[in-house]
Every structure is written in structure tokens, then in C-alpha cells.
Amino acid sequence: MEWFNYLAIFTAAICFTTFLYRLIYLLSLGLPKDLSKETGSVKRGIIYSFTGAMSPMEKESAFLHLPTYAAGMLYHVGIFSSLLFFVWVIVTLFVPITLPSLVSIGLVILLSLSSLAGFSILIKRVISKELRYLSCADDYISNFLTTISQVAAILYILVPGSQVIYFIIMALLFTWMPLGKTRHLLYFFFARIHLGFFYGRRGAWPTVNKS
């Protein structure tokens, strides 16, 4: 293994440990203590929070902004795919296996599209007056790093000798992930749980079918 392999593995381990620590801490805190009398169901509320409430038809942030929503979804599929790909790459450092060519082609297409989606979101943040108002450096850096890591994964697959760039970019991403807003990777799930708890116990979620 080369120094850049060690660097990426080390930063990935630190990143994973940080998220794991935060996960355990949040889990240890449990759900809020609420003394009011439950009239709905927390369980059903939480399930709905991760299912029906996430439907694009239920959210103005989705159906009023379909291009951005589609770009965001694609971007996130790309992010998770590139993270899984990193795990695969690390495994191949120890076990001599290769990715089937069909999978490689599919991954390149997916990551190309998700990179474009990532850049489009970044460009929107730069040109939109409202988004610039909301943004700090972290917003641009987080978006740029997660997008460029997908481009690096494409390079890794297609361009022999691009390993150094790939591992350095992944190391930068793993360093930034627990520090920047990318940490919503973990907090997102807890936000949904809290919403499900809040609306579920009041019987507001699952929502009533209006039709």
C-alpha cells in the first residue's frame, strides 16, 4: 500500500468513528420525555415519517421544485454509491478482485449524472441571491467535495494512474464530513424520528387521506 492509501483509510476510520460516537450518543439520549397523554401512535408516526411523509407528493420542497428535487435525489444516490465504491476499492487493496465491466459502466454513468447534479446544485447556490444569503463557506465546500469525490471515482475507474488524486480527494472528503454540514448524513435520520414522534403521538401523522 502507498501513503495515499493509508491517508484515505486513516481519515475514513476517523470519520466513521466520529459518526459512530455521535450515533451512540444520540441513541443513548432516547426519545423526548413527554408527559402528555398520547392519542395517536409514535410507532406509526415514525414509520410514516420515513415513508409517506417523504413522498415527493407530500412535500412542496419536492413538487414545487422538481428539477432541484430530482437533482438532489440523483446526487444523493451518487454519494452513497461512491462511498460504497470506496469500500470496494479498499477491499481490492487486500483481495485481488475486479469490478465486473457492466457494473463499472453502470457506475460511471450513474456517477457522471450525479456529479452533474451536484455541480448544478452548486451553481444554483452561487447564482441564487436567496441561497447566497443563506450560505457560508461550509455550504460551498461540502457540496464541492462531495461532487468532486464522485468525479474522482469516475477517474479511478476510467483513467489508470489516477489513484493518487482519488485517494487524496476521498481523504479530504472524510476529513470534512464530520465537520461540515455533511454531518446531516447522521442527523437527518434523527430529525425524521423526532418528527414522527411529535406528530405520531398527537395523531397528526400518518396524515388523513384527503381524497
Binding site: 444520540l26 439520549l29 423526548p32 412542496e60 420542497s61 441571491k129 436567496e130 454531518r183 446531516h184 442527523y187
Partner: peptide
């Protein structure tokens, strides 16, 4: 936990703008 979660979750995507009456009425960031 709820406070910790709420303070760390927002990604400032701004897609909530159109759901707020104040933004809809005044169009100020």
C-alpha cells in the same frame, strides 16, 4: 436529543422558502 438534532440538520437548501407565508408575502431571503 431534539435540540442537538435540530441544530445540526439544516443544510440551507432554501427549499422551505415557498412554504413560509412571510417569504411568500415579502420575497426577502
Amino acid at each position: 436529543s431534539k435540540l442537538l438534532t435540530s441544530l445540526n440538520s439544516c443544510v440551507r437548501c432554501g427549499l422551505c422558502a415557498d412554504s413560509c407565508m412571510f417569504y411568500k408575502a415579502f420575497k426577502e431571503a
